[in-house]
Amino acid sequence: MINFAQLLIDALLMGGLYALMSVGLSLGFGVMRIINFAHGEFVMLGAYGAFWGLTLWHIDPLIAMPLLIVLGFLAGWLLFRGVIEWALKAPQLNQILLTFGIALVLQHIAVVLWTGDVRSASPGYAVSTTIIGDLFIVHGRLIGFLVAGVLIAALMTWLRYSETGRALRAVAQNRDAAILMGIDPGRIYALSFATSTALGVASGAIVSFLINITPFMGFPILLKAVAIVILGGLGSVAGTVIGAFVLAIAETMVAYYVPDGAGWTEGVAFALIVAILLIRPRGIAGQSLAT
C-alpha cells in the first residue's frame, strides 16, 4: 500500500511535467494543423539554456526560466516568419519533413556547440527530499509539477479570457469564419507557434534538473508528447493535460507491477495510442481532423 501511494505521487508529479512538455505541441497543432517535429529540440535548447545559466552565471533554472521563455517566444516567432509560414499551404508531408529538418539542424548545432556529453543542472532542490512516514517527495519534481501547473493555468486563462486568446481559439475552430470576423490568421499562427516554442523552452528549463541533458534528448520527448497529444485529443489543451496524467500513471504502474515492466514503459504510450485510435479517434477531449 505504501508503495502504491508512493507510485501515485511519483506518477502525478511526472504527469505535470509531461503535460507541460506536450501542451505546446498541442497548441501549435490545434491552431495551424502542423505537428512541429522540432518541439523536442526546443525543450532541449531550454534545458541547455537553464544548464548554462546555472553553470556559468549561477542563475537558478527557475530564475532563468522567464528570460528563456521570452527568448523561446522570439525564436519561435522568427522561425515561423522565416521558415514555417512558407510551408503552411504545402502538403502535410512537406511540413513534417520541414520541421523534422529543423529538428536535425538544431540537434547538430547543439552537438557542435556543447558536444554529446550528458549534463544535468544540479540546484540543491533537484535531489533533496521531504520524507512523510515511508513516503518521499522529491523537491525537484514537486517544483516542476507546480511550475507546470502555473504555466498551464496561465495558458488556459489567456486562451479563455483574453481577446488574443479568443482570436486564437477562433482560428483553431474555423479559420474562414475567423477571417470574416477581421482576425489576421497569419499573426495568430505566428503567435501560436511562438507560444508553443516558448512552452517547450519552459519545460526544458524544468527538465534540466530532472532528467539528463544531451543534444539527442528531444526526440524521445517528442515521441512522448505526440503520444500524449493523440491520447488527449489533437488540439485540445485540457485533453492534453488529462492525457499526460493518464500516460504517467499507466507507465509508472506498468513499470512497478508488471515483471520487467520498466522495459515496457515506452510500449505503454504506443499501446494507448493504438487503443485510443481504435476506440475513440478524437482522443479524450479532442476535435476531429475534419474540423
Partner: peptide
Amino acid sequence: EELIRENAPDFLPSLLKVRS
C-alpha cells in the same frame, strides 16, 4: 534484479522494488 529501459526519464518504480 531490475530491468530498466535505456534512456527512460524515470527509474523510481524500479528503485522502489529495490528498496523493498
